[in-house]
Design a protein around this nucleic acid. Sequence first.
DNA 1: AGACACAGGTTTTTT
DNA 2: ACCTGTGTCT
Length: 677
Amino acid sequence: MELSSLNPEQRQAVRTVDGPLLILAGAGTGKTRVITSRVAYMIARGIRPGNILAVTFTNKAAREMQERVKRLVPKRRLTDGNGQAEKPTICTFHSLCVRILRRHITKLGYKKNFVIYDAAEQLGVVRRILSQISLGSRKPDPGAVLSLISRWRNTNSDELVAEDEDLAALAKRLVSTYQQTLKASNAVDFDDLILLVLRLFAECSKALNECRERYHYIMVDEYQDTNHSQFQLVHSLAKTHQNFCVVGDDDQSIYGWRGAEVANLLDLDKHFPDVQVVKLEQNYRSTNSILEAANAVIKNNVQRRAKKLWSDKGAGEPIMLWEFRDDEEEAQALVEEINYNRSIKKIKWREQAILFRTNQQSRPLETALRKAEVRYNLVGGQSFFDRREIRDFVSYLKLFLNPDDDSGLLRIANVPARGLSNTTMEKLLGLSQERGGSVFAVMRDESALGQFQRRTVDSILDFVELVESTNERLNRPIALHSANPLKAWCTAWLDEVELFREIRRMEKDEETAENRVRNIVDLLDSMDPDFVPADRPVPERLHRFLEHISLDRERDEEDEAGDAVTLITVHSCKGLEFPHVFIAGVEDGLIPHARSKVEGTLDEERRLFYVAITRAQKTLAMSHCKNRRKFGEQIPCHPSPFLKEIPEELIVHGNEAEPVSEEEGLDFFANLKASLE
DNA sequence: AGACACAGGTTTTTT
DNA sequence: ACCTGTGTCT
């Protein structure tokens, strides 16, 4: 296999196939290239593709690797002796676990039709638990409790470090109630996916050995982002054969707040004493001015593996630093600069990105962009699957698949209104908790409904009938003749339930109502994808559909091809690169964020800044404001202390007269003329 | 059940 | 400024 296009370190990383290996891959040093080449190299060396496992955090990363591996490996290599396709497993932690649980979850006392709860459903569970117990005058934030519960479940240490000790104690107390509640609903959350596999491995050595046998060569991407249970998962698979390769960068660890433990990377040799280390420092992305700034900033962090990025691209343009009066002026100036780049320097919108720390910073930027009629793409924001009508629809689906799903049931029990008021549902929920079962189990047990009025009992029984008959129709092989069996089944119950009529009734504005209906119809049309074989039964189709939208909320965006400026938070820009980067709001209080001071996470804030800087390929401009609108009022702001860490000679302060070369000046007028014609 | 008013709280996000 | 959740009134 051809490895000559790789640099010596990359080559060494690719060739080290056996035994533990740590690849310290600085930003932009070609780590995806190394991982995919390594997979291809292993296959070329005769390792069976089916024995290779590569784990990522996001579906996007997994998809990209799959495609690149496919391009690198000859087709005949991806077939076993009998002509059967045999591919390496390249997927996220969570989809790996779902694959394993699909086979074994009944061993853990769950039913096969389990559903996966997303963040909103988890939050609902916590809310319900909190409302049941008396907490005196204190009413804790369910979100904070949930995040502590999650952290608690994913750490091995006996103490949970949190500023709020009472809240941490409460979370610790609620962990078991929380777990029982999900279990009674035959539901699992994202943490469960990992934790249940760990439990499976502990309780069933046969399953563990099967997995060890199968995944004989393991790679983990973005290893600095793993939490303790994810570490345990891969460690338990790898500790017998030791073929364990992790790729990561401690300097890009920016998810400590959600449980990532960079110690997994820094202390890898504790668990794998023979680990070999390869450092990738040659950067293929940025100019040296940008890299020097990044190096200068990050070297102020203490606990890190020393790395120094360099490139052969030359110094390039200096870094621009601007000061503005307030965030509105900042937004306007950035938009002007973007359009100046476009008209004079022929730099497309899509080659430019504005990075910011907090989502609320996007507001003035969007306003200015719209005013100047600049197309932009705001990354993140509300997901399609968070829209109310989609949540309702999906809740119905989950409930019909798994009637024990309390979360789905409580959400749609009275949507549209069918005589199941809040009080009724609360009483039913209380009964279910007494019995340790699901709400649906109470509803279908007529002897348990003595306290309700005849009319309410009738409503309850009608609802039970709706769920059971729809569930029965799901399992009856009728719709198989249809080209879209799942859609056909959904259409039938949607008619019966009259959800569309309810949406049109509730929404005053006719256009939004039709939009909501259309969202559901769009989803219906995607429910029977081509890659699901025509002979698959409807329940399996539903299961796969729900699993898919739970694990991969990305929807194919059509307008991605268009020319548009990217607006993105610093967190979500990790892994991306842009020719021209603007970092807005480089201020004390934003980068580093004000809360990081009390939380003592200044290092992570510095890494965040480092990640932002290293996104830039050709030019980098940063700005800060003297005032910024926050929660309705103007607050005075100061430049970020991190700016002082960048050597002065790399920076040109804007707002000082910008020299315009004669050539550019002429160009400007030529373009102006052209645009007027 | 549904409309409205008021309080409280606003970092970062994927699966 | 703005959104979300909760409480009160009809």
